[in-house]
């Protein structure tokens, strides 16, 4: 009995220390956002600030090129919200089509969807750029938002899995009661796949919030920058090296992710475990 308790204790010491090492860098950054730049550079070994200062947040918030981080946050919230709405809506409609409708070449299209899941953005970024350039979309939010309205493979897959778990008898009962296919989708299936919709929404929002490459490609005026791109330019040596302010804005940029992560963790873990979505 005693031996077992010692083993449990050793186990917790090992796992806990490893967990501490893993989060230490993030903690160090958050704490750094309350330090002076001088302290970050010259006593990097300490975690806690000598004195908690809010000055970095005030300085950092002023942003650059005449735009404050308030503007960049507004842009990020706008892009992420609209793109997420589009992705979630279209993916649930398409998911229903694959799970419940019969039509020719269904397997072919489902295969195409799986293929699109495997195909990374980087592969099609150049031709997509050429296309959007022709359409006159470069410099606007359209390239970041419109493709999201065309269903995202991972979310479609998640919805299909969920809908297949709902008994078909439910649809049939509704049909006997006179419901059409659109009513079956909207009134019966949609409320039942709430959980996969929430999971898709969380992932979509976090990915769009973090997205850097697409913003870098398509946006060319500071006025339109999302937080990710603004942060990169804010950290460029030409804008000075105020590490305190940089850490403050970096911490703020992660804040929405932290909040979603803490409150919605159950959905994230389920989503990952059931489909293998990357985090």
């Amino acid at each position: 009995m005693k031996k077992k308790r010692i083993r449990t204790l050793v186990y917790h010491i090992v796992v806990f220390s490893f967990a501490a090492v893993m989060v230490y860098p993030v903690l160090w950054m958050i704490m750094g956002s309350f330090k002076t730049s001088n302290e970050i550079l010259n006593s990097a070994q300490s975690l806690l600030p000598e004195k908690f200062l809010l000055q970095n947040y005030i300085t950092g918030w002023q942003g650059f090129a005449g735009y404050s981080f308030g503007a960049f946050f507004k842009n990020s919230i706008f892009i992420s919200t609209v793109a997420t709405l589009g992705a979630v809506l279209s993916s649930s409609v398409v998911g229903f089509g694959f799970a419940r409708c019969r039509f020719p070449m269904k397997n072919f299209w489902f295969g195409c969807m799986l293929l699109s899941m495997m195909l990374p953005f980087q592969v099609i970024m150049i031709p997509q750029y050429i296309l959007f350039n022709r359409l006159g979309w470069v410099g606007t939010y359209l390239p970041l938002i419109i493709p999201q309205f065309c269903a995202q493979g991972f979310f479609v897959f998640l919805n299909v899995q969920f809908i297949k778990g709902i008994p078909v008898e439910l649809d049939e009962a509704a049909r006997i009661d006179g419901a059409g296919i659109f009513q079956i989708f909207g009134l019966i299936i949609l409320p039942l796949i709430k959980s996969s919709i929430v999971t898709s929404a969380i992932f979509s929002f976090m990915w769009r919030w973090d997205d850097f490459l697409a913003a870098l490609l398509y946006l060319n005026q500071p006025k339109k920058y999302p937080v990710s791109l603004a942060l990169k330019l804010f950290s460029d040596p030409t804008s000075g090296s105020d590490w305190g302010a940089m850490f403050a804005m970096a911490t703020l940029s992660l804040l929405p992710i932290f909040i979603i992560f803490m409150t919605m963790q159950r959905y994230l873990v389920e989503g990952i475990a059931s489909t293998g979505i990357k985090g």
Partner: peptide, 14 residues
């Protein structure tokens, strides 16, 4: 947690 935030610009700066 790290895989949620790891590919962000903030962590790159860190």
């Amino acid at each position: 947690l790290p895989s949620i935030i790891g590919s962000s610009v903030a962590i790159a700066i860190l």
